[in-house]
Computed example of a mutant assay.
Amino acid sequence: MSPSNFESHKSIIRNKVWSQLHNVALPDSRFHHDYSSFIADFVGSSRANDFLASLPTYQNAEVLFIAPDNCIQELRFRALKDGKTVLVTTYGIRRGFWLLDPLVISGEKWEIASMLDGMEKHGRHVTLEEISSSLKRIDLMITGTGAINCQGLRFGKGHGFFDLEWAMLYTIGVVDASTRTIAVVHECQVLDEKLVGEEWDTGCDFIVTNKRVIEVAGTSRAN
């Protein structure tokens, strides 16, 4: 498949999923139902996050990267309540990485800190150098996405933010090919489409929906 046809096919897939997502997605205060601008929260995301929190890979993790997506805001809050350190980016990585440490942020502020409007007030801005020196290792990376197939290949908004976040953290040595990755989506966002990913695509080891957990074998990693 040529690059132009590949991108066209991915666009068709996104639009097909977005038409179904409109029935279960929660509108964003800034972008309403413009799924090309944000990753939506959805009916059933709490159940999906419960499934995720039951996984040993989450329970054993001490430091998590959790993307700034609407569907996993509740998970960021939960992780802080579970005593885990959370690394998150600002939306679009515009203002870099922020560290949410439950030992530093008081408990009554954890929920606000887990939100995009609150993390910059209660979290700590960290450079890549500071991440490398202070965290040493990120145990788990979690993201939302526009759609994903059963082989763990994501079809996001088309901006590649999670791939870039992975690449940045890989470059400084805090993640590697053994670092587990999880996508949280509504069941309608899981596809049977089979596509060959591009070299920078970062696949997911687990797909967690409001109905089930799918474990993926042989997931590709951008590096």
Rank of each mutant, 00 (worst) to 15 (best):
W110S: 07
I148T: 13
M168H: 11
K84L: 02
K84I: 04
I142W: 05
Y91Q: 06
G158E: 12
H122R: 10
L103K: 15
G107L: 14
S106R: 15
T85N: 04
I112T: 11
P102H: 14
T90C: 14
E165C: 01
I148C: 14
K157C: 06
G118L: 04
K136A: 10
L128F: 01
L99N: 04
W98P: 04
L116H: 08
I131P: 05
R94G: 12
I93A: 11
T145C: 10
L164R: 13
R124K: 15
G92D: 02
G152M: 03
D101I: 02
M168D: 08
E74L: 13
L99S: 03
Q73W: 01
H159M: 14
M141K: 11
R78D: 00
L75W: 05
M115A: 03
G92T: 06
T90P: 14
G156D: 09
V126I: 08
A147R: 01
L80S: 02
T89Q: 10
S106A: 12
S114Y: 05
P68Q: 01
V126K: 03
G96W: 15
Q151F: 07
T90E: 15
F77Y: 14
F97W: 14
L75V: 04
E120Y: 00
G123L: 03
I138C: 09
L135K: 13
T90H: 13
R95K: 15
W110V: 09
A79L: 09
F65S: 00
